[in-house]
Simulated assay, not measured.
Amino acid sequence: MTEERTGVATIKGNPITLIGPELKVGDQAPDFTINKDLTTGASLSDYEGKIKLISVVPSLDTSVCDAQTRRFNEEAAKLGDHVAVLTISVDLPFAQSRFCSVAGIENMDTLSDYKFRSFGQSYGVLIKELQLDMRSIFVVDEKNTIRYVEYLKEMTEHPDYEAALSAVKALI
């Protein structure tokens, strides 16, 4: 049975249940099956040998998710080819593509967890009640060891951008 965590997160103050384990710094990053588009899959191994900044958002169509994605897109341009910046949501790939074209997102990969919710369950961010992924940040080194984790306690708040970026820069 999949682990369920209660009392760890809210949406506008209302409690939610997260499905999956709480990952910690030093854990091996779990693999996942996710979509680049409707027919093309992706997994952690696609980014082998790179530092990975994984920005998880519930939906690109909300103001905080929009701001988070734009911020990491700007920063991705400064981090170099050795760093892969990923934004993961359960938005359909069509919606992600449209968002990226309108917002000028071109320095990161936007991946969809819509089909299997594999990422959400493996990383402990799948919201049981909504089937969305909870806002969170993971920094994973070249050997797939987690070096930074931020699980937000309130979905509508911004992550600590500076702490996540500092964790990435410490690995470069």
Rank of each mutant, 00 (worst) to 15 (best):
residue 5 R to E: 07
residue 5 R to N: 13
residue 7 G to H: 10
residue 7 G to E: 10
residue 8 V to M: 12
residue 9 A to W: 02
residue 10 T to N: 15
residue 12 K to I: 02
residue 18 L to R: 15
residue 22 E to R: 12
residue 23 L to A: 04
residue 29 A to D: 06
residue 32 F to E: 00
residue 33 T to D: 13
residue 36 K to R: 15
residue 37 D to C: 07
residue 39 T to L: 14
residue 42 A to N: 08
residue 42 A to P: 07
residue 47 Y to N: 04
residue 50 K to V: 05
residue 53 L to I: 06
residue 55 S to G: 08
residue 57 V to T: 13
residue 58 P to T: 09
residue 60 L to C: 03
residue 61 D to N: 14
residue 62 T to S: 15
residue 63 S to Y: 08
residue 64 V to L: 05
residue 67 A to F: 01
residue 67 A to Y: 00
residue 68 Q to M: 10
residue 68 Q to R: 03
residue 69 T to L: 03
residue 69 T to V: 13
residue 70 R to N: 08
residue 71 R to M: 12
residue 71 R to F: 13
residue 72 F to S: 01
residue 73 N to Q: 11
residue 74 E to K: 11
residue 74 E to R: 09
residue 75 E to K: 04
residue 77 A to I: 06
residue 79 L to V: 06
residue 82 H to A: 15
residue 83 V to C: 07
residue 83 V to A: 03
residue 84 A to W: 02
residue 84 A to L: 06
residue 85 V to L: 04
residue 85 V to P: 01
residue 88 I to Y: 01
residue 88 I to G: 01
residue 89 S to V: 04
residue 92 L to I: 11
residue 93 P to T: 07
residue 94 F to R: 09
residue 95 A to C: 06
residue 98 R to M: 13
residue 98 R to Y: 11
residue 99 F to P: 00
residue 102 V to F: 11
residue 103 A to H: 09
residue 103 A to R: 13
residue 104 G to I: 10
residue 107 N to Q: 08
residue 110 T to F: 00
residue 110 T to I: 11
residue 112 S to C: 08
residue 112 S to W: 01
residue 114 Y to A: 08
residue 114 Y to H: 15
residue 116 F to T: 15
residue 117 R to Y: 14
residue 119 F to P: 02
residue 121 Q to W: 02
residue 123 Y to Q: 01
residue 125 V to K: 03
residue 126 L to M: 15
residue 127 I to W: 04
residue 133 D to M: 03
residue 135 R to L: 07
residue 137 I to E: 03
residue 141 D to L: 09
residue 142 E to I: 11
residue 142 E to D: 12
residue 142 E to P: 00
residue 143 K to F: 10
residue 144 N to Y: 11
residue 147 R to P: 00
residue 148 Y to C: 04
residue 151 Y to N: 09
residue 151 Y to F: 11
residue 151 Y to H: 10
residue 152 L to V: 07
residue 155 M to A: 15
residue 159 P to S: 09
residue 159 P to M: 05
residue 160 D to Y: 10
residue 161 Y to V: 01
residue 164 A to C: 12
residue 164 A to S: 15
residue 170 A to W: 03
residue 171 L to N: 06
residue 171 L to W: 05
residue 171 L to R: 05
